[in-house]
Amino acid sequence: NLFVALYDFVASGDNTLSITKGEKLRVLGYNHNGEWCEAQTKNGQGWVPSNYITPVN
Rank of each mutant, 00 (worst) to 15 (best):
L28Y: 10
N31M: 02
G29Q: 12
Y7V: 11
G34I: 03
N31I: 09
V48M: 03
T20W: 05
N43A: 13
Q45W: 04
V56P: 15
V48C: 10
E35F: 04
N15T: 11
F9Y: 10
V48Q: 02
V4G: 02
Y30A: 08
L28D: 07
W47G: 00
N51C: 11
F3K: 06
L2C: 10
A5P: 15
T16H: 13
A11H: 07
I19C: 08
S18W: 01
W47Q: 01
Q45R: 08
N51G: 10
G29D: 13
N1S: 02
G46W: 05
F3W: 07
R26F: 03
N15S: 12
P55F: 07
N43G: 14
V10P: 08
A39C: 03
K21W: 02
A5Y: 01
Y30K: 07
I53A: 04
L17W: 11
G34T: 09
L6C: 02
G34Q: 14
I53L: 14
H32S: 11
L25K: 01
Q45H: 13
E35H: 02
Q40R: 14
N33M: 06
Y52S: 12
V56R: 08
T41V: 07
L2R: 11
P49V: 00
N33R: 07
D8S: 09
V48A: 02
L17H: 06
G22W: 02
L2F: 15
L6D: 11
N33E: 12
I19Q: 00
K21A: 12
D14T: 12
L17E: 01
K21C: 05
Q45K: 15
I53T: 10
K24T: 05
S12E: 14
L17I: 04
N43L: 12
G29Y: 05
E23N: 02
D8R: 03
L6K: 09
G44A: 09
V4H: 07
I53W: 00
N31F: 03
Y30F: 10
R26V: 09
S12Y: 02
N43E: 08
S12C: 05
T16P: 07
V56C: 08
V56F: 14
I53E: 00
Q45T: 12
K21T: 05
V4D: 03
N31V: 07
I19D: 01
N15P: 04
S18R: 15
T20Y: 09
L25E: 00
W36A: 07
W47H: 03
Q40M: 13
Q45G: 05
N31P: 05
G46P: 00
N31H: 11
T41D: 01
S18N: 01
V10M: 14
Q40H: 13
V27F: 01
R26I: 08
N31Y: 11
N15G: 14
Q40C: 10
N43M: 09
K42D: 15
G29I: 04
N31W: 05
Q40I: 05
G44C: 11
E23P: 00
N43Q: 14
V4W: 05
N15D: 12
F3D: 03
L6Y: 02
N33A: 12
N43C: 04
E38M: 08
A11L: 05
T20H: 05
W47M: 07
L17V: 08
N33G: 13
N15H: 10
L17S: 01
N15E: 12
A5F: 04
Y52C: 13
W36Y: 15
I53Q: 00
E23H: 02
G22M: 14
V56Y: 13
A5K: 01
P49Q: 05
E35M: 06
G13Q: 11
D14S: 10
S12G: 11
Y7H: 12
A5G: 05
I53Y: 00
N51P: 10
H32F: 08
E38C: 05
N1I: 02
L2M: 14
L17F: 03
S12P: 14
N57L: 14
L25Q: 00
N57G: 04
L28T: 08
